[in-house]
């Protein structure tokens, strides 16, 4: 069954642009990205959109559909009514290159700022022995496809450009949590999570979790546990005293 849908697509370069109206054919089983491709094929050949796998696994086609961050390839047209006008814009937190394509290099910069996995110096590659229960917490975070919709929706940087230098965003705070929970990582990440990567900015309003297409419980399983680890280190006198009395290492347990 086909029908004609009303679309408003943001078009422009370098931030300057406007919403343009289109009426476009929609067929049964199609997703928003299919419609964007049909627009390219029929009405707007220079419409820019980043895409790759069309299967929700590459994280390329992140966009905002009716104001909500979504993957274009995973948003079914059947979730809209036929008379609804569907508004498609680029992610609002990152600079626009053209139309729906944003410059997400902020995220690559933040990724580089996090020290990589640091195993103990006396354990060589091939000697790692880990039980499943020790690593499965971290494995949830490995499902991330780096669509960057969590960083896009996070109001800390979405509404406050000035916070970008000091805030890694949910995606990379999750990466810090992943490494901090790893049984073979010995780097001390708690102080830097709070002081350098801006964990304290997070007010756990859970938008990152709401938009994650991989359904990773970013807030409950990464950010809040990391906040609690930071409390152990910086704000809990009882833990500090316990570490002193029992001569425990406060960095890893």
């Amino acid at each position: 069954m086909s029908y004609k849908a009303k679309f408003r697509v943001w078009r422009g370069e370098g931030g300057e642009g406007k919403l343009e109206d289109f009426t476009v054919e929609v067929n049964e089983g199609e997703v928003v990205l299919d419609i964007i491709h049909r627009l390219q094929a029929t009405q707007a050949p220079d419409l820019a959109v980043r895409w790759n796998c069309k299967a929700g696994k590459c994280g390329s086609c992140s966009m905002e559909i009716n104001g909500r961050p979504k993957l274009g390839c995973m948003t079914r047209m059947s979730t809209f009514t036929e008379d609804e006008t569907i508004t498609v814009t680029p992610m609002r937190t990152f600079p626009v290159i053209k139309d729906l394509v944003t410059d997400v290099s902020f995220n690559y910069q933040k990724a580089r700022e996090i020290p990589s996995f640091t195993p103990p110096s006396d354990v060589k590659p091939g000697e790692y022995r880990m039980q499943q229960i020790d690593v499965e917490r971290s494995q949830e975070f490995r499902k991330c496809i780096e669509c960057f919709m969590c960083n896009n929706v996070c109001h800390v940087i979405r509404d406050h450009e000035e916070n970008k230098p000091g805030f890694a965003g949910p995606r990379f705070l999750m990466r810090i949590a992943e490494l901090d929970m790893h049984p073979y990582d010995v780097a001390d990440r708690k102080d830097s999570a709070q002081e350098e990567h801006g964990l304290g900015y997070c007010n756990i309003t859970k938008c990152c979790t709401e938009v994650c297409p991989e359904h990773i419980k970013i807030t409950d399983n990464a950010l809040i546990p990391m906040k609690e680890r930071v409390v152990d280190r910086k704000y809990d006198p009882l833990v500090w005293l316990g570490n002193k009395i029992f001569k425990r290492s406060s960095s890893k347990s």
């Binding site: 943001w10 422009g12 370098g14 931030g15 300057e16 642009g17 905002e64 009716n66 104001g67 909500r68 609804e84 508004t87 814009t89 680029p90 609002r92 937190t93 990152f94 600079p95 626009v96 290159i97 410059d103 450009e161």
Partner: peptide, 14 residues
């Protein structure tokens, strides 16, 4: 390349 999309609406959520 350093500019976000200039959209005046506070939200486009429907």
């Amino acid at each position: 390349r350093r500019q976000r999309a200039q959209i005046k609406e506070r939200t486009l959520r429907t």
